Simulated assay, not measured.
Amino acid sequence: MASFSLDTIRAAAEARYSSTDIELGDNTVRLLNPLRLPKAKRTALSQLQDRMGGEGADQEELLSEAIRLVAERPTAADDLLNAVDGDLAVLAEIFDRYGKGTQVGEASASAA
């Protein structure tokens, strides 16, 4: 029978479900993997993603709201959004990279 410490399991979870980190000057903004978010935030993120595909959806507003949900700290989300300054292409690129970084974790979790 195999035995694992909780610290070993936590390290494996961190490696597998790590954040998407964006360097912003001297600071790093961490966008947390959805599996590392509280349930209420995961639900809100899922609802936002559903709204993004809707006709007439304000993509800038929705992507900004999503960043606020997944950022490790509210001030970090504000810093990132201020630096992006409403550039929808940059917001879309952030979420493209975020999505690619979280796909493995989401697929693995749904298979469990």
Score class of each variant (00 low, 15 high):
residue 32 L to Y: 08
residue 86 G to A: 09
residue 9 I to V: 14
residue 20 T to I: 03
residue 93 E to Y: 05
residue 86 G to H: 07
residue 109 A to L: 01
residue 17 Y to V: 03
residue 71 A to I: 09
residue 55 E to F: 15
residue 77 A to I: 09
residue 77 A to H: 05
residue 42 R to V: 05
residue 82 N to G: 03
residue 79 D to L: 15
residue 109 A to P: 00
residue 4 F to K: 12
residue 10 R to H: 06
residue 44 A to L: 04
residue 22 I to T: 07
residue 82 N to R: 14
residue 100 K to F: 05
residue 108 S to E: 13
residue 7 D to K: 14
residue 13 A to M: 11
residue 99 G to H: 07
residue 12 A to T: 12
residue 68 R to Q: 07
residue 43 T to L: 08
residue 12 A to E: 10
residue 18 S to E: 02
residue 57 A to F: 02
residue 105 G to M: 09
residue 88 L to I: 14
residue 36 R to M: 01
residue 73 R to C: 02
residue 27 N to D: 15
residue 54 G to C: 08
residue 61 E to V: 00
residue 111 A to H: 08
residue 99 G to C: 06
residue 16 R to H: 12
residue 103 Q to P: 00
residue 14 E to D: 12
residue 100 K to N: 13
residue 65 E to Y: 14
residue 28 T to S: 15
residue 28 T to P: 09
residue 22 I to F: 12
residue 37 L to I: 01
residue 80 L to A: 04
residue 87 D to G: 09
residue 79 D to A: 15
residue 57 A to N: 05
residue 12 A to F: 15
residue 88 L to M: 03
residue 37 L to Y: 01
residue 104 V to W: 02
residue 32 L to F: 10
residue 35 L to A: 08
residue 33 N to K: 01
residue 53 G to L: 02
residue 92 A to G: 11
residue 40 A to R: 12
residue 48 L to W: 03
residue 42 R to E: 03
residue 22 I to C: 10
residue 53 G to W: 00
residue 4 F to R: 14
residue 3 S to V: 14
residue 73 R to D: 09
residue 6 L to E: 09
residue 51 R to T: 10
residue 102 T to A: 11
residue 50 D to E: 15
residue 2 A to N: 13
residue 85 D to M: 10
residue 70 V to A: 01
residue 104 V to A: 07
residue 47 Q to C: 06
residue 112 A to L: 15
residue 46 S to E: 08
residue 83 A to E: 08
residue 31 L to G: 05
residue 91 L to N: 06
residue 70 V to I: 07
residue 97 R to D: 05
residue 21 D to C: 02
residue 58 D to P: 11
residue 36 R to K: 07
residue 52 M to P: 01
residue 15 A to G: 02
residue 51 R to L: 09
residue 78 D to I: 11
residue 72 E to S: 12
residue 1 M to Q: 06
residue 96 D to V: 13
residue 72 E to M: 06
residue 3 S to L: 13
residue 5 S to I: 11
residue 85 D to S: 14
residue 67 I to R: 00
residue 49 Q to E: 09
residue 43 T to G: 00
residue 111 A to G: 03
residue 20 T to A: 03
residue 11 A to W: 12
residue 82 N to C: 03
residue 78 D to E: 14
residue 49 Q to F: 10
residue 78 D to G: 07
residue 15 A to N: 01
residue 76 A to G: 13
residue 74 P to H: 13
residue 101 G to P: 04
residue 97 R to E: 03
residue 54 G to Y: 02
